[in-house]
Nucleic acid binder design. Structure first.
Lengths: 245, 245
DNA sequence: GGCTAAGTGTAAATTAGCTGACATTTTGCT
DNA sequence: AGCAAAATGTCAGCTAATTTACACTTAGCC
């Protein structure tokens, strides 16, 4: 009942935002991303780069297919996963996008051969998007932003390389531990050594992220639970002592 | 004997280059990289971005450690591999750098925690380098270059992601086939469907690249040889019909 | 030319982790 | 409340690939 009340409040809040300060909202939504902090209000507004704003709720699938004009997206709220379907029909989790992350064709190259979609994991998400071409113009006019953006893309690359290295040299257990540590680091609420993570992933999702089968992930998670390293349920994950992972 | 003669000639050639047109050489070495084509002679010269030029021969190990000022490198000639040593002392091949490739801290972020070195694979290599800070300045002054560079980094990322996907979903055999196809594509000399690749890698190198054990790689290569898909030796790899891979 | 080290060939034992095949639990929905 | 679907738990059998272990071959060097 309490949850429902809050939901109503949020809705109300959104309506106010939408109807009374939509222009400003656009602005702030980009503005509070670290990449765009160096830009002035007028720069963002003037360039008019926000051309889309979308809300969606849990389980929804969002296609950002290549048939459309190429876009870059910014996840303002919630969590989504990017899933790729390969030729054999296998689904792979390409990425987990969290609040504040940019996603889409970050390389600024349109490539239409990959079949990808996004699936909403949290209760609801809001996404804003802008045209890749507009963004390119903006980068051309703001070398500092271009440099930041390059570093940003580079950081993403470094993360991927890191995962890659883990995948090669470490076993499933180590990968799970590493994943949990990373997750805790990024989103966990710390209280001393105890960390609580809001769990919007299924065990299957986790399995896919650390590149193992669902069964193996389940086994490992249960093993951790019996060793009291973890308290897992569908809503949250409690790690009593993060240093023990 | 013929090889030696050519080597002498090359040396002579280098000396001429070095003593009579070193400034121009610097220029051209960067100039003929696709990234830098948009820049004028004066831009490259004026910015004075080449601050290093180095030659090395087979087997040599080049450290580009973080103790030094951060640099970006351009491999002008030959092939090298980038090897990372992790905490457990395991060596992993991070990258194979081919003629014309940029390498080093492409993300423009100095990160000193990783222990990496480069090992020369081909008979000899020449490498030029410039300071990361100079490069950043250049990017700031040339938004078009910055954009190209971002796309370039993005492309690298995409390749890595692709490898990652292969590693996850395909078995060692498929990965080897894919690797050979890629290699042939990049460096092979085609003659109809026959491709000849100059082989500067050991089977151990190949194994590491496709993330398997040396023994498995050997077995697979021999299997391919008995199936007449391949003719492997230490100097070159002949693929009689690339379409059959 | 002969020695050493690096690279290659081969095979058996072992194993991590996948597959498939279920039972059980939880969630969302009408 | 009751049902279907999704998520989780568990286990036996199987398989690809690693490990270990050793023989052989080639390349580089004094």
């Amino acid at each position: 009942m309490k949850g429902f009340f809050i939901y109503e409040l949020k809705l109300l809040h959104l309506q106010i935002e939408t109807y009374f300060m939509y222009e400003d909202l656009k602005y702030w939504y980009l503005r509070d991303h670290k990449l765009f902090r160096i830009l002035s209000y007028s720069q963002i507004k003037q360039l008019c780069i926000i051309t889309g704003f979308k809300k969606a709720s849990k389980g929804e699938i969002i296609y950002f297919s290549s048939s459309d004009v190429p876009r870059i997206f910014l996840l303002k709220k919630g969590n989504i996963k990017i899933v790729a379907v390969d030729d054999d029909g296998n689904e792979t989790i390409k990425d987990i996008i969290q609040k504040g992350d940019l996603f889409g064709e970050l390389t600024l190259e349109t490539d239409n051969k990959v079949e990808e979609y996004a699936k909403v994991l949290s209760d609801d998400v809001s996404i804003c998007s802008f045209l890749m071409s507009d963004f390119e113009d903006l980068l051309l006019r703001n070398p500092t932003l271009a440099l930041s953006y390059t570093k940003f893309v580079g950081l993403k690359m470094k993360r991927i390389k890191n995962n890659y290295a883990n995948l090669v040299s470490k076993d499933a257990k180590t990968r799970l531990y590493q994943f949990l540590k990373d997750w805790a680091e990024q989103e966990g609420v710390k209280n001393g050594n105890t960390v609580i993570i809001e769990n919007y992933l299924t065990q299957n999702d986790i399995a896919q992220i650390i590149c193992t089968s669902r069964q193996t992930a389940t086994q490992l998670l249960n093993e951790m639970e019996t060793n009291q390293l973890l308290d897992y349920n569908r809503k949250q994950i409690i790690i009593p002592d993060i240093t023990k992972l």
